[in-house]
């Protein structure tokens, strides 16, 4: 059987961390691979490519999404923020600083996803209690088991933002 040939490259412009990034991509490229392999923004991590681990969490128009579960072609025109876009003028974002302060990381591989998720969590107003934080951070796996310190870091960032 002759399989249909994949569609040829497409041209699109992604808006990432405030900058326009014109790209020519294989139509099948996920947002995650576009960020990592084409824009060399490797802070967004790849843990499963199946939407099951949260390592690839980025913000789209202020909401957290999993970059492995969307095609880059579907994100033209959206405002994407990655971990690289969080620190302003070299100063750590309060959530980043809180993760360092509370040692909310070990190997660091889940960390960008945790932080992007936490930033959205604060905006979502889901930081009312430690249990609420735990529940709404449960889409971000941490195999090193840094959860206790992740909760403490988010708690601090939430208290300071209040």
């Amino acid at each position: 059987m002759e399989l249909p040939r994949p569609r040829r490259d497409i041209e699109l412009t992604l808006r990432v961390n405030g900058a326009e990034r014109p790209l020519t991509l294989d139509a099948r490229t996920t947002l995650l691979d576009a960020l990592r392999d084409h824009l060399h923004l490797t802070g967004t991590k790849k843990g499963c490519e199946l939407g099951q681990c949260g390592a690839c969490t980025v913000l789209r128009d202020g909401r957290r999404i999993k970059a492995c579960l969307t095609l880059a072609a579907m994100q033209a025109g959206a405002e994407i923020v990655t971990i690289e876009g969080l620190a302003a003028d070299g100063a750590l974002h309060p959530v980043q600083a809180a993760f360092v302060e509370h040692d909310g990381l070990q190997c660091g591989y889940c960390t960008p996803g945790q932080i992007m998720s936490a930033v959205a969590l604060l905006r979502e107003g889901r930081t009312g209690s430690d249990d609420e934080i735990r529940e709404f951070m449960s889409g971000n796996l941490c195999r090193c088991g840094a959860y206790t310190n992740i909760v403490a870091a988010i708690r601090q960032a939430a208290d300071r933002a209040a």
Binding site: T44, L92, F99, V100, D103, L105, Y109
Partner: peptide, 15 residues
């Protein structure tokens, strides 16, 4: 505090 903490929380650490 972890000396590699800032690299890890900013995405600068390369795997």
């Amino acid at each position: 505090s972890r000396v590699d903490g800032p690299a890890k929380v900013t995405g600068a650490a390369r795997y």
